[in-house]
């Protein structure tokens, strides 16, 4: 348990997503720990969210509390399953430095941050559950907390996007080229002699010709690559938000309407956004 919290604390502090690691195309996040912490944090918020069903005067339901505790982590897991393939394809098309497993790790890290922030809102949700009987207000409050923690959590990989999509460091391109036998044979220029000589500074600095190859043909300029990365991430974020919202609608009830009996899932009808407008209308009148 102690290791779980230590690792999660390190994640919140950004120790697993350092810029230099992302530039090197790796994320050293302990996946098992992250999944366990995510489940625990999601269940914690689910507990606070489901409390309303136990405390409401009409149809109090312990079952709803238990089910909501399971459903909150499930909501995030299923949304990830649905949206991950599209992110991976988009980012691979844009020459992301992360392979599929590293992309999963980055998204798990983002969802971990999302759930950490959501769980920290738990006491506030619990307090309002204890002090209010307005079902539309509780629905709206939960939607706001999910939205805030989602925006912050997904802002977390957004910061990593620049590193992930920026062109490879020059030294790495240089070493890639050096490993190619053809390249090694073809280049007999004085610059190559300098690169293979004893002078360490000279070997670190790429020859002018290779810098030209790197910037002109191998990668777009850093700002272009980052802008493209941001665009792709923005599209994925939009998809993730829509899928997450609708997934929440499919998995409902989470809070549990006082007028309706307990059900594991409600009938498929309407959609999340229509229901949100309806909730706001109920709040107003």
């Amino acid at each position: 348990m102690g290791k779980l919290f230590r690792d999660f604390d390190a994640l919140l502090r950004g120790k697993f997503t350092r810029r230099e690691d992302l530039l090197a195309g790796r994320i050293d996040v302990p996946v098992g720990t992250l999944v366990r912490a995510g489940l625990l944090l999601g269940a914690t918020y689910g507990l606070f969210m489901g409390l309303y069903a136990v405390l409401r005067p009409e149809n109090p339901s312990w079952l709803q509390l238990i089910v909501t505790t399971v459903k909150v982590p499930l909501l995030f897991l299923l949304t990830l399953v649905v949206t991950f393939p599209s992110l991976y394809v988009f980012s691979a098309l844009a020459n992301s430095r992360l392979r599929h497993l590293d992309t999963v790790k980055l998204l798990l890290a983002a969802i971990g941050v999302n759930l950490g922030l959501l769980a920290s809102f738990g006491p506030v949700t619990g307090f309002f559950t204890l002090s209010t009987d307005s079902y539309p207000f509780m629905l709206f409050l939960n939607i706001v907390f999910f939205a805030i923690s989602g925006l912050v959590g997904l802002g977390f990989p957004r910061r990593a996007v620049d590193s992930v999509f920026s062109p490879a460091p020059v030294s790495r391109v240089q070493s890639d080229l050096d490993e190619s036998p053809e390249e090694g044979r073809d280049h007999d220029s004085p610059a190559d002699e300098g690169a293979s000589g004893d002078d360490a500074d000279a070997s670190d600095a790429p020859p002018p010709e290779r810098q030209i190859i790197h910037t002109a043909t191998m990668s777009p300029r850093p700002s272009e690559a980052s802008a493209r990365g941001r665009q792709i991430f923005g599209i994925w974020l939009f998809i993730y938000a829509i899928v997450g919202a609708q997934m929440g609608w499919i998995l409902r009830p989470f809070v549990g309407s006082p007028d309706l009996p307990f059900e594991l899932f409600r009938e498929r009808e309407s959609n999340f956004f229509a229901a949100l407008l309806n909730t706001i209308e109920q709040l107003l009148y």
Partner: peptide, 18 residues
Amino acid sequence: TLVVLPNFFVVNTLLGLR
């Protein structure tokens, strides 16, 4: 204060202010 402190802790950590 007690109700808001957990969120304060997480927000400070996320912003790198621990």
